[in-house]
Amino acid sequence: MSDTAIQRNNVRVFGRGQQPMLFAHGFGCDQNMWRLVTPAFEDDFRIVLFDYVGHGKSDRDAYDPERYRTLDGFAKDMLDVVHALDLRDVVLVAHSVSSMVGVLAANAEPDRFAQLILIGPSPRYVNDPPDYHGGFERADIEVLLAMMDKNYVGWAGALAPMVAKNDDRPELLAEMNESFCSTDPVVARQFAEATFLGDNRADLSNVRVPTLVLQCSDDSIAPDSVGEYVHRQIPGSTLHRLRATGHAPHLSHPDETVDAMREYFRGAVPA
C-alpha cells in the first residue's frame, strides 16, 4: 500500500530543505488550500502535499467506504504517505479535521513526528453537555449533510463521475483539473459524517509530540473554547490565538499564519 500512496494520494514534494513539512488539508478542500503558505517554507523545509483518497486528484478508484468510515482510515492515508517517502522528523501542518487525523497518526507512530501544527482543531463538533461545548447540535449536522447532498447533486455530483469514466472527453477532464477543492460527492458526505459526528477527545491526552494549536478569532467551526480544550488536553502544547477571523487563516490571513508558525519554530525545544 505504501508504494502506491505516492500516486494514490497525489503526493507532491518540493522545497530545498531537509526536514519534511507535511501539509494535510481539511474537509471540503484539497492540497490546493496550502498554496498561499507553502512558499514561505520552501527554503527551509522539504514540503510534502497530498490529497486524501477521494479528494483533489487522488485515485478515486482506491476509495473504500469501509476504510474511510472513521478518521482512522484518513490517518492510514497520512501514514502511508509518511512511509512511502520514509519521512522522519516530520513537521505536520494540519487544518481542521486533519488535526485529529494527525493526532491519530502521531499517536500510532510518535517517532516519525517532530511537531504538530494544528490549525482550528476540534476533537468533537457536537455538544456533549454539561461539560463539553463543541459548538453544534446533531440536528445542525443533519442539515449540513442535506445541504451537501443538494450542492453535490447539481455541482460536483454531475461532473465527477462523468469525468472519471470518459477518458475520451479531455475537455471535461481539463475543466475538472482547473477546479479547486474538487471532491467526490459520496466521499464528501462520508468525510462529513466522520468529521462532524466523530469524537476524538480521548486521543488528545496521548499525544507525545510537541504541539502548536493555532486558534482563529470568531471561528464558527472551532470556537475558542474548543481550541482552549485541545490545548489543555494535549500535554505541553502551545496555544496561539490569531487575530485572523474565520476557520481558514492560511487562506484568509496567510502572512499571520506563517509568522505564528515561525515564531513557534524559533522558540520550540528541539524534539
Partner: peptide, 29 residues
C-alpha cells in the same frame, strides 16, 4: 447563515472563492 450554512461557507464556499475566484449554483439556506 444558519449553523449548518456557516460550516458550508467555511469549508466550501470561502475556499472556492478564495482559491478559484468564483463559485456557481450553490444552494445555501
Amino acid at each position: 447563515l444558519s449553523v449548518a450554512a456557516r460550516i458550508f461557507y467555511s469549508t466550501h464556499l470561502f475556499p472556492l472563492l478564495r482559491l478559484q475566484g468564483h463559485a456557481e449554483e450553490l444552494y445555501v439556506p
